[in-house]
Design a protein around this nucleic acid. Structure first.
Lengths: 342, 342
DNA sequence: CAACGTCATGGTAGCGCTACCAATTGCCTG
DNA sequence: CAGGCAATTGGTAGCGCTACCATGACGTTG
């Protein structure tokens, strides 16, 4: 009356089946799969044969339960559709595809509360590492990260006080560099147009302001922002708003490339000459910036590389050799193009 | 000498701790959390209090192991950065955020082999449902899907032979509609420009060809394709190639909006009048199409909705009431804009 | 009022795997 | 040649949870 197999599991082969077929103990199969070096050549071969024949695939849930560690990277980003994060995520995926680690991707929608909730969920799985976007976690989130018991990498930005590790660049410097470029090129009434205004955009704005004040050009009416999610159509509207406030506007530093593209299209529509009448600078340097007409000056950021480095650092930490450099600044580059070439 | 707790787990509260504190059996705690209706009001309250006090969070790995089902949706897409899939994924995430289900997102890089590998990995977790992009799975992948023992939804396209369920639209019809629109507007030497040429692009091309042949306008030299990943810069190059082959080209149906935008920019650069000299139609209708200058005609597809519907169908199937309609065609809309208004 | 369902609760036995601790063997050292 | 050590293998006992079955306390019914 005993039906040991078939009772619950879908009748899939287990490690015990493999062990029986190979004539070894279950633990040896486990070792052969995870630390081949510790099993003799011969047994390894037998076990591999049994695995192949049965089509055995280890159950990650059982594995996680027994070892109190899931082979999962938790990744938290504020948006899935924003090209910027998509690139970071792609870097993460590509770096992890050859490893045994799976990826658990969470979308916080730029909400601290949602981030806390997801951190709670992710933490309950005992992930191997956590990668989170930004450095402005709520106190609760920070606590959750600190007590996660795994490497943590904050990405996109650098800052003074990492939970564990950081890979990014200075958005403040990026904003300042973009603005200084406009000033140096001869623009004077330079506006800031920013949507979404998350912490990174705030810092870009701060960089803009610093540059403008240093040049004695700052005027609060030059700043146009909205909490609305950034998009190309929004860029168009915002340029209209900005021009309505300051008709003498002769340059704009845009929060990001979507906005910059919208601004460019609106200039075309309103027959405003770019770069002659208005100069435009974007942020992130999506690949369309270089083929736009005119091509758009932008701050190139290394998003894919941020993803790769974050994984590399986490992997190193998991392997036991934490990188000596806990904060990695990947910088950015000003790409001068036609939109500011006058 | 017995240290039952603290031995392995990080000392987190378990269901047994909650049960002890609430003065009930562990199984009752389990039930209170999963099927509250089956536990009396009073015990439910006591248990909730204990849960809150201890900060208990169920271990999803243990849960998955014991119940032979993980609360995970496996999602397989060919690209993470392509806006089209990002929207579908966003729809999936938004629909699932209020549920207990986690999401396991895989990137197949348009590779059948990679899809098989990921399906193997995902399957080993016994997911609650699988959502995969496309209908052209390899025989191996199809077998894996069929034997996954969970609801499966194929998204993006509709076709005659679903593994289980399908949500999408006809890319062939989309391609034909776009091309017919150009023909009706009076364009004659209409090119097809397509990058990446995955199965969906192939079907759009087939739709283009059908429309052109029906009008007696088809000419193989009008078709320009490449296996390279689609991008805006690539659109620019491909228009150049197309014009080099057929200088009399007077219209283009583009594989997707990135290409269309690149084509538009190249027209500006080469001083080709749009829509007068060349008409342009894109595919997907990203939001920038309506603000481009001139605005670009495109085939609007319901990507976010595809994600939502896929989840809704999977959830229904999990709950035991499979939708009577296994194939859902969400259609598309031709958005006529300035780029074909002559 | 005996027989029977229903509801609420609990005990037991795993799910499939790995941490921990032997046990065995062969070889090296003094 | 005793003692020690590394290399290889295995047994046992869980990891934290839930499926399954059992138990008792209530009605409900004929």
């Amino acid at each position: 009356m005993i039906k040991p197999r078939s009772r619950r599991g879908g009748g899939r082969p287990t490690i015990a089946d493999v062990a029986r077929k190979a004539g070894v103990g279950a633990i040896t199969v486990s070792r052969a799969l995870r630390e081949p070096a510790r099993v003799s050549e011969e047994l390894r071969r037998q076990i591999q044969a049994a695995v192949d024949e049965l089509g055995y695939v280890p159950d990650p849930n059982a594995r996680a339960l027994a070892s109190a560690r899931a082979e999962v990277f938790g990744v938290l980003v504020p948006s899935l559709t924003n090209n910027v994060f998509a690139e970071v995520v792609r870097g993460i995926y590509d770096s992890l595809s050859a490893s045994p680690f799976r990826i658990q991707l969470g979308n916080t929608h730029y909400s601290g509360l949602e981030e806390e909730r997801l951190l709670q969920v992710f933490g309950s799985q005992r992930p191997a590492a956590l990668i989170v976007a930004g450095i402005d976690q709520t106190p609760t989130s920070r606590k959750l990260l600190e007590s996660a018991g795994c490497p943590v990498v904050q990405v996109m930005e650098t800052g003074p006080d990492p939970v564990d590790m950081m890979v990014g660049f200075s958005h403040f410097d990026g904003g300042r560099t973009a603005t200084e470029h406009l000033i140096e090129t001869g623009y004077r009434r330079i506006g800031f147009i920013g949507a979404r205004m998350d912490p990174r955009s705030q810092r870009r704005l701060a960089g803009y302001r610093a540059a403008m004040e240093a040049a004695g050009l700052f005027d609060p009416r030059l700043v146009t922002t909205t909490p609305v999610l950034s998009s190309v159509p929004l860029g168009r509207e915002m340029l209209r708003d900005a021009l309505a406030k300051v008709p003498t506007l002769d340059g704009v530093f845009c929060n990001n490339d979507d906005i910059a593209l919208g601004v460019l299209f609106e200039c075309h529509r309103a027959s405003i000459a770019v770069p002659k009448t208005i100069g435009i600078v974007g942020f992130n340097d999506l690949d369309m910036m270089q083929v736009a007409f005119p091509s758009i000056t932008s701050i190139r950021t290394h998003r894919y590389e941020i993803g790769r480095r974050a994984v590399a650092m986490a992997l190193a930490a998991i392997a036991g050799n934490r990188p000596e450099q806990r904060i990695v600044d990947l910088g950015f580059e000003l790409k001068r193009r036609e939109s500011t070439a006058r």
